[in-house]
Each structure stands twice: as C-alpha cells, then as structure tokens.
Write a protein that binds this DNA or RNA. Sequence first.
DNA 1: CACCACCAGTAGACAGCGTCTACGCCCGCC
DNA 2: GGCGGGCGTAGACGCTGTCTACTGGTGGTG
Lengths: 194, 194
Amino acid sequence: MSEGEAGLRARLVAAGVDLVLREGQSAVSLREIARRAGVSHGAPRRYFPTHVDLLSAIAREGFADLTARVEETLRAAGPDPRTRLVALARTYLDFAAAHHGMFELMFRHDLLASGRLRLRETSLPLFTLLVDLVAQARQPTDAPAPVLAGALWANLHGIAQLWAWGSLPLATGVTDDDTLLRAALDAHLGPAPH
Amino acid sequence: MSEGEAGLRARLVAAGVDLVLREGQSAVSLREIARRAGVSHGAPRRYFPTHVDLLSAIAREGFADLTARVEETLRAAGPDPRTRLVALARTYLDFAAAHHGMFELMFRHDLLASGRLRLRETSLPLFTLLVDLVAQARQPTDAPAPVLAGALWANLHGIAQLWAWGSLPLATGVTDDDTLLRAALDAHLGPAPH
DNA sequence: CACCACCAGTAGACAGCGTCTACGCCCGCC
DNA sequence: GGCGGGCGTAGACGCTGTCTACTGGTGGTG
C-alpha cells in the first residue's frame, strides 16, 4: 500500500536498469537484483522464469530509453534531414558511451537468441526513424533507403562499439568520435552541403 | 616425452580455442577447459592467474587466425587495391559469421579492460593492413587514410555484428550481407569502378 | 650416493551464481 | 468463518572462479 508498492515485476526491472547503468553488465546477477529490490533470490522467478528473461526486460527498457532520447533530440532539431541525421547519430553514440553497460546488454547475443527481446517492438521503431530520415537525405543515385540506412546504422554501431573498445582511437589517432561520425555520414550521404 | 606433450600452457589455449569455436562463448569456463586438457581445475592457474588471462590468450589466438586468413586472402587477390579491399572485407565478415563465438570473445569488453589482450600486437597489425589498402584506394578529396580506414573498419564491424544479431536482415529486407558490404565500400571509397 | 629444494599439478574448501522444489503466509471470496 | 490460491521465502543442488595446503617426481649439490 505504501508509495514504494509498484509491483515486484516493475521493481525488479527498475533495480536491474539501475544496476546495469551504475555498475555495468557483470553486476546484473539475478540474486543481486533481487537483493536490491528487497526480496529473496527466488522471488523473481514468478515473473521471469529465467535470468535471461529478466535481462531481456531490462534491455527492452534500454531500447525504449534510447528511442525516447532520439525522438526528443529530433524534436529539438531543425527540419533539415541532414541535420536531423547528425542529431540522431550523435544521440546514438552518446548513449553508447554514457551507458556502456546497458548498450552491451542490449546487443547481447544470448538475449537475442532467447527471443525475449522482441526486435520488432524495440529496435525496429528506432531503425524506422533512421530509414525515414535517410529517405529524405539520400541522393537519387544512392542505394535504396533501407539498404543505405542499414549500412549507415552498422557504421554508427561499429563506431560506438569500437570506440568504447578503445582500439579505434588507438589505431586512427583521432581523439573524438565526432570526426568518425562526420566521416561516416559524409561517406554514406555524400559530402555535407554545409 | 610423448607426442601429446606440448606444454600445458599451449594445450589449454588450444582446448579453449577448440571449445569456443565448437560450443560458443558460454562453454569456455575455466574448469571445462581444464577438463578437456585432461588436468585438474587448479592446473591452469600456474600459467593463467585468472580466467580472463586464459580467455585473453584464446582471443589473441583468434586475432592471429583472422590476421592470417586476411593475409592469405590478400595473397590470392590481384593487385587492384579496391579488389583487395573487397577481399579483406569479405574475409572479415566470413570470419565473424563462421566463428561467431570466437568473434564475440575477441571483442569482449572485460577482456579488453584486463589489458591482457595487447591490442598493439593483435588488432593493430590487421588495422595497418586496412590503412595501407585504403591509402591506395582513396580519392585525394577523401578524409585522411587512418580516419577513412577507421570509419570503414567500424562499418565492417557493425555489419558483422548486426548481421549476426539478426536485426539488420530483418530491418533492411536484404538477405545477404554482400549487399551491405558493397554499399559500405561504395560509400567510403566512391562508387566501384567495376 | 644421499639429500634437498623446487616446481608442476592435485585436491579440497569457499563464496557466489542460476535453477528447482517444498513450504508458509495472507488476502479475498463463497 | 473457513478455504483456496497466488506471492514470496528458504533451502538444496550442481556449477563456477579463486585460494591454499599438499604431494610426487626431477635435477643439482654436498
């Protein structure tokens, strides 16, 4: 009845999100989440049959968060498609850098394999946003929008991943990912009009 | 003295490589590796103080393997830089697809953080190969070769990752990664002369 | 030739993990 | 007023990585 009574299911997910943001992927054990939610280690099982089920719910929260941030950014960006694409890309990279544990969790292969991630409801909306923008910004001679958007997304994702990994700054000698972001956008959409 | 006596250190790494290739990342527990190598679970500790030390050694083997495959491919490819780049990229994607467990292990963030991966000796040689080819293939107006190569590598890596992840085919509608590979190369190096 | 020091590998303990199962408690309904 | 059912507890199991005490064999030295 107290204000903290938000339903154990939601509390577990919230505790998990908090944990992965704060301590990283390795901290998100089932038992630690239960501890933080103030219940016994067996309690989560009623709502999440398996550890990966709980992790998937946490990762879905991550996708929702990222999508919300991107939409927020786009709301503030001007009408120019290219500018909007830069904003989207910047948000993606910032998210990956700021919430690296969550970002890792979101793209964990075993979660995907479990099928509980529901790509259609999580990552697809985000991708659709990208496809729309690409469709507006692309040149007539470019590849079809979905292919172009797919290649661009992969580029973004790779930058986020390898940048966090540290070998990209080491190898390229550049010290900020914005250089690579611009290079990627210029490459896929032609040089910036600017 | 028998032929099987290759030194426990090497046998452990070999068993780990075999295991990760065959069963995937989750199978590479310290104790399972020890079991496969025919020693007790405490034995690895003499050569690898920690589990991540052993995993790092396995991952380094993966980088060496990938590098060797790329060099082999390049040896067979013609002199045209663009053709050679396609060959390199294809090898990278094939490796990621065929040895997904190893590929994941190689880019695990906790291994990187342990410092035992030694990027300079493993991934840098590979990247240098790429930079050299890019330097030959790039247009004068393009970004500097290291930046261009970095962006291209990220693109490749992202394709490998997201393709294996499954959302790229789902989202783009394309059914083979070659389409995306070509799109990426065309984007970064200009349309193929063909 | 005897001894000893050393080193590789063994074996057991420990805490933590995910999963499973048997058990109580409490609330709402008949 | 009693009963049923869902929610959470608690303990067990086998597995994990790490730590520590130990043993057996081997090479060098007196």
